[in-house]
Design a binder for these strands. Sequence first.
RNA 1: GGAGAGAUGGCCGAGUGGUCGAAGGCGCUUGACUCGAAAUCAAGUGUACGUUUACGCGUACCCAGGGUUCGAAUCCCUGUCUCUCCGCCA
Length: 432
Amino acid sequence: MLDINLLRNDIAAVAAGLAKRGVVLDTERFDALERERKDIQTRTQDLQARRNALSKEIGAIKGKGGDAAAQLFEVAGFGDELKRLETELERVQAGVRDFLLDLPNLTHASTPEGGGADDNVEVRRWGTPRTFDFPVRDHTDLGEALGLLDFATAARLSGSRFSFLRGGLARLHRALAQFMLDTHTTEHGYTECYTPYIVNAETLVGTTQLPKFETEMFSVKKGGVEGEGETLYLISTSEITLTNTVRGEILAAEALPIRLTAHTPCFRSEAGSYGKDTRGMIRQHQFDKVELVQIVHPDRSYAALEELTGHAETILQRLEIPYRVMALCTRDIGFASAKTYDLEAWLPAQNTYREISSCSNCEAFQARRMQARFRNAQGKPELVHTLNGSALAVGRTLVAVIENYQRADGSIEVPRVLRPYLGGVESIGRPA
RNA sequence: GGAGAGAUGGCCGAGUGGUCGAAGGCGCUUGACUCGAAAUCAAGUGUACGUUUACGCGUACCCAGGGUUCGAAUCCCUGUCUCUCCGCCA
């Protein structure tokens, strides 16, 4: 959520900032909402003040055994009007809030301007794609030939966009997640967390999945509950649960930075993406991800973004998978983010780099929705900055490993850093 | 799933219809005392919003949401969470 004072004081600047995203700010509507809010709020508060004063008088008079008929008469005179105004005020304040909840974050000055994914800027590249002396196969071919990746079974169980892993690939998948977690906790200073996978609506408002992106979410209801129970949602990323740990908190300055990581499944309905990446494990309704979240002092958030991105890069480097770092442009960047780096891993079968991680600085955008603050040097509550990044998406990392480490015979070499997690196994072939 | 007890400021805890944003204590901040520290004494110490050049003033908030009332931390209803006992369960 943007700072409402920014819109009040310099709405032209906000409009210009949002225009870089291709978002048109309805300044007239905002002004109208604010005028109405201000008018109703002052009138309501004046009447409340009068009522409170009269009630105090009534109390004092009755305490002495006097007659407060005059005061009671005056209160009765505007009681209905006050009730009406209070209801109106609630409505118009909700209107202002809804308006704000609908606006994306302003992008940082260093975020490149652009009209779409083609305008994302490559920041750096690591590694050299391997050359193959045999025809390259994609992970679907390789995995199904090994009998370890089974989309048919997944479809029977659940439908399209799910996968079923067996044997060596299931184990490799687990090894990847563990390797990532171990690296972040022992080398990068993150605290490992185990979090709920099902959350309430308020939590999703904090990290901006609601109200605007409900169609991306899977929702559930408790069984055995008569009538309409509260709707709960499956997390689409553990950014949700990790970041919301500080919702409503006023943290001590010394508590910052907070660095959290978790390995969780993520559930996305991906509405609107029909037809994209229908083959393979790239785009699934359910996938695992190791997430990094940092809650930091506002002065430190851009330094933290570089560090966090580096933490994600470390994983790809240790796995020896070539990748590039992209600075997302203003039209491609996420709703809550001011600046985002995507990590794209090399996929030989697609002969291109594909997104495997997204690292964002949301500045105070999520913190304002969550009312997550710390005590600054003046002792006053101030909004924290929040960052998050995948490090990495486990399913896509598995895809990258399968494709980059494939051999002519269809077996998969196990990356060196993962071998300890697989009991020293050096390759995954067709089970005997 | 059954029975009961709770939820008040950073923490403990008082408050069952009126001058209560909330006693008292602890903690914290500042000042006094001291060479310094401790102890002691004094003052201060929530958040959001509105309004104001400013000092300030006003409104809301005592788990959440409704209700009763001129007036609710206090009474009523619903929900959430916590604790105790029983049952069930991975």
